[in-house]
Design a protein around this nucleic acid. Sequence first.
DNA 1: GCCAACGTTGGC
DNA 2: GCCAACGTTGGC
Length: 157
Amino acid sequence: MPHALNYWLMKSEPNVYSIADLQREHQTIWEGVRNYQARNFLREMKVGDLAFFYHSNATPPGIVGLMRIVKTDIVDPTQFDVKSKYYDDKSTPASPRWQTVEVEFVETFPTILSLETLKEKFSDEELLVVKRGNRLSVMPVAEKVAEKIIAIASQIP
DNA sequence: GCCAACGTTGGC
DNA sequence: GCCAACGTTGGC
């Protein structure tokens, strides 16, 4: 029996890496997560899981599309790159600290689901990203909530 | 640019 | 193990 499909939400600042970048490149390694809670969620991901792409530090911030996890347990190469801002001198190839996943583009939603809209539709218990002060860049999304997000996103604008 | 929230670091 | 200082995130 196949594992249940899990849903996630992953944040990126569009001036660093946007959904348009992912659409053009088709797939990417999700580099640069340096928070243990977020990394632990990355470690839990399974091939086939779906993740909402969230633009943070954007105008407006919000969910802009969907991607799929295509490879898991990737050692984030930037942790060993001394020229990278994500370089971690406490991490060694023998025991790397930071794992991540490879994602592929699925779709850009016809309209952005702004943080304001998400706050209207969901409580902070249903959807962690609407919680005030939340800084986690990778988080799980409950299946029912995910289905509702997709339904809202699919409506004709 | 401001600043609230919160994670990390390091002295003790 | 506590906690003050510091750095970062990210909405506004």
